[in-house]
Simulated assay, not measured.
Amino acid sequence: MKNTEPHYLKHHFLIAMPHMDDPDFAHALVYMVEHGPEGAMGLIVNRPSGLSLADVLEQLRPDSEPPALCRSLPIFSGGPVQTERGFVLHPAGPQYLATLALESRSLSTSQDVLFAIADGHGPDRHLIALGYAGWEAGQLEQELIDNAWLTCPATDDILFELPYDQRLNAAAMSMGIDLSLLSTQAGHA
């Protein structure tokens, strides 16, 4: 009997195919926070915005100098939706004012997690992003049919340990795929 249950990609990576020409997603690696019949939400995890945590803290706490460490903590461009909204992806553990448990990971959206990171008692491993990537019901499924993305399970090593510029290729290599060998032309067999 054939399994007719839909396959959802929560906790997976979306790897942009080389022919992806959408500037929001070309060469992107997206961590899928949620995917279901209503649509999907993810964070681009390999595109720094040019801002640091110090830049954000200067806006949130203008009367306090951010710790020097915060200058080296990048803020990522998480996607083109709600680019003023912040998200902190981190391993499961501490709960903050607005934290969504994602099994082995958590997604926090309240300022207290940023203050905790800056003050040295937040999650050791984290990814801070402004904005997110979103898909309406059926939209991501159509993009997958159109060969816009490869998918693989997400790993903490790629999310939190690797430099951002190595994440896309590492995710592809986790499936034995060298992106540089893939054609930039879309097609169907």
Score class of each variant (00 low, 15 high):
S77H: 09
S49A: 08
F25M: 05
L69D: 14
G39S: 11
G42V: 08
A54D: 03
I75N: 00
H27D: 15
V45P: 04
P62Y: 14
C70K: 03
L51T: 03
Q59I: 14
F76D: 05
G50S: 11
A28N: 05
D63A: 13
E38A: 10
L43K: 12
A40L: 06
P48N: 10
I44P: 07
H35T: 06
P74C: 14
A40D: 10
G39Y: 09
L60V: 10
S49Q: 07
G78A: 15
M41Q: 08
P66L: 05
Y31D: 01
P37M: 08
G79Y: 06
V56E: 00
P67W: 01
M41P: 05
G79R: 04
V45F: 12
E65N: 07
R71G: 04
S49Y: 01
D63V: 09
L29M: 08
V33N: 06
D55F: 15
Y31V: 14
L73S: 12
G42Y: 03
R71H: 11
F76E: 03
P37Y: 10
L69K: 00
M32P: 13
G79D: 07
S49G: 04
D24A: 02
D63I: 14
P74Q: 13
V45E: 06
H27N: 05
H35P: 04
M32L: 05
N46L: 10
A28S: 13
V30R: 06
P67C: 03
L43M: 14
A40C: 05
P67M: 02
G78M: 10
M32I: 12
R71F: 03
L57V: 05
F76K: 00
M41G: 15
Q59T: 12
H35L: 02
G42W: 11
P37G: 13
C70Q: 00
L57P: 06
N46I: 09
L60Q: 09
S72D: 11
G36C: 02
H35M: 12
P23M: 09
Y31L: 13
P48D: 14
P66T: 04
F25R: 13
L51G: 00
R61V: 12
